[in-house]
Design a protein around this nucleic acid. Structure first.
Lengths: 346, 346
DNA sequence: GCCTCCATTTGAAAGGTTTCATCAAAACTG
DNA sequence: CAGTTTTGATGAAACCTTTCAAATGGAGGC
């Protein structure tokens, strides 16, 4: 083991040149051992490999990339690292990347445009093969720049008004419809829709679905009570619960449809705190079907999105775009599915 | 806007050389604009910047790194991306990295040694400034290699028998002690400890703390019933609940201390399913105090670890190690804190 | 003994950025 | 106005890997 000096801090990392010198071969041969081992005689190969081991040689990825002109990495910019929905999507992407022998860099914008911008620019500078992103605002012009300069960008779990990118999403209108139809079937006619802010396309689409379900059942839009939140978090769910409970019992919805599970879990918690029985006093439907939804003490009925599949497909679209030069942008839309549990049904 | 050809696929990305040519200056000047703008006259700077904009110039990070000998990125290899505890730790790291203008790459080993190895090696090849890792096995020899070759590695939320690395952890023995003392104070004398597998140091340490609490209260070790699980997941928590419920009421613990919150949430869910009241029939204490613990329908008493702080401190240690050549490895140990909620107290 | 073929190995060039010693010109100093 | 300092710009070298055309040497054919 060739440690130098005091505590293993090498003066300089060993390069192919050093390996070549020690093994008594040319630089090109070392490279051949690394990249085309079959073109090298067994003896030379062995000699080079011993030299590498002795020097603790580590390939320099920067130099490799510089030469190759691109890296072998993908990146996913997540909207909210603390929401399990996104980590599950990331898992789907990761598996696909792994299958193609690519690294995946996971970044977290935390709902902040500035962070998103910084990451986009850094990743472009890294020359990643492509970027998957769940953007803060899918219509942001900044998302056009990378593709224009040759780095493909795929939009995940959002859709864009223009089809300048590939995108993978789930039909949110249908999801809202499923949720509310289910509640109507159970006899609920006074339903709260909890979600916000309204700038989020998904919040709007899911509400639209809810209205559609009402209309199909011959109920007017006034049967849906809008409770707008500031964010899709557990904490906002709790606050929504307070607002709901604050209404006189006569004018209180008997069911709530939440724009995501984090809200629903907060609402559920508040219900318990305020001694409102779920589902008897209030039936609850969430959205996303994160693992914690099933694990809630009153397991949550939720609209399931195929999270890992979403990630997998997005990664595949990205890879298709990187390989095929004249590629047509595709908008993939998955179908959500209602998972019924105790929060709506005894 | 200098798009060429059909759909924005540039023939070749513009380089400093192209910018220099277009701006009519030398290559070195372009570099100066980028790195020491004050050494360049305003006019030249303006000219260069226009040229950059026109060509859509994007710095090539590989070349930069190659020249610099190292990247400006850190990496965190998480043990389990689906456990919010780790994503919170990651957030702490991220904020520190951001403050120092470094990128953070988050990787997920998913509890698999092979993935961990692949990531370690890739990150070393990328010449990241250092690696933060919550390893599958903190005593794995593989963790020695990177530091030996000059890439610092900091161990997060684990401790190692030898002090060859910096590490940041929380006192798990104390945590176990806090949890069980609390239960004893509430009058429980028959307590289940749910956790596993026993290869995990944390599972062992927390049990040790539990026994310590018993001893301090003058109770023998037989007052703690061991229920060993295969993993620290919600699902395993449910199974543990079944096992617990399977015992004759006369010999059933009145309280359970779970090695983490995922287990506790699973257990809680199973209790509800089996109509065991929490905390009346079974009091539950979890560990980690993830956000979902407070949001559970019976809010969970839990041992809080300073998650973001853990990440923050780990990142700082890493940065200290990268800058200070003869740096002494430090073992930072945080103190956990008991957060009492309804799952143990009415 | 000459020629061809094949398996190995070689050496140079390229890729884009940064740095640094050097130069040129302009701005002062006295 | 000659000499000196300051400011701004330059060009070459270095970072490390990969690739590819060319060279080497040995085996086999005639």
């Amino acid at each position: 083991m060739a440690t130098t000096g005091s505590n293993g801090q090498e003066a300089r990392a060993a390069s192919v040149k050093d390996v070549a010198a020690l093994a008594g071969v040319s630089l090109g041969t070392v490279s051949n051992v690394l990249n085309r081992p079959d073109r090298v005689s067994v003896q030379t190969k062995a000699r080079v490999e011993t030299a590498m081991a002795e020097l603790g040689f580590v390939r320099n990825e920067s130099a490799r990339q510089l030469r190759a002109g691109r890296s072998n990495a993908l990146a996913y910019i997540m909207l909210d690292g603390s929401n399990p929905f996104f980590t599950d999507v990331a898992q789907g992407i990761e598996l696909t990347a792994e299958a193609h022998d690519l690294s995946l860099f996971t970044c977290n914008s935390g709902n902040r445009t500035d962070r998103e911008t910084v990451y986009l620019s850094r990743l472009e500078q890294q020359r990643v093969q492509g970027v998957l992103i769940t953007p803060v605002d899918p219509d942001d012009k900044a998302l056009d720049e990378l593709p224009r300069r040759g780095t493909p960008v795929v939009i995940v779990d959002r859709t864009r008004s223009t089809n300048t990118h590939c995108s993978v999403a789930v039909d949110d209108v249908l999801g809202g419809e499923l949720a509310v139809s289910h509640l109507i079937e159970l006899g609920h006619e006074h339903i709260a829709y909890i979600g916000g802010p309204n700038t989020l396309g998904q919040v709007r689409d899911r509400r639209r679905g809810a209205h559609k379900a009402l209309a199909d059942a011959g109920l007017g839009p006034d049967h849906l009570v809008d409770i707008t939140t500031d964010a899709l978090t557990v904490d906002e769910g709790r606050k929504a619960g307070e607002r709901l409970a604050g209404r006189p019992a006569s004018n209180r919805p008997t069911a709530a449809f939440c724009a995501n599970d984090m809200l629903a879990l907060g609402l559920l918690q508040q219900c318990v705190a305020l001694r409102m029985a779920v589902p008897d006093d209030l039936a609850i439907v969430g959205y996303d079907d994160i693992d914690f939804a099933a694990a809630a003490a009153v397991p949550l009925t939720s609209v399931r999105q195929p999270r890992r599949e979403l990630g997998r497909r997005a990664a595949e679209l990205l890879l298709a775009e990187t390989t095929d030069p004249n590629h047509e942008h595709q908008q993939v839309v998955f179908t959500p599915e209602l998972v019924v549990r105790s929060s709506t049904r005894r």
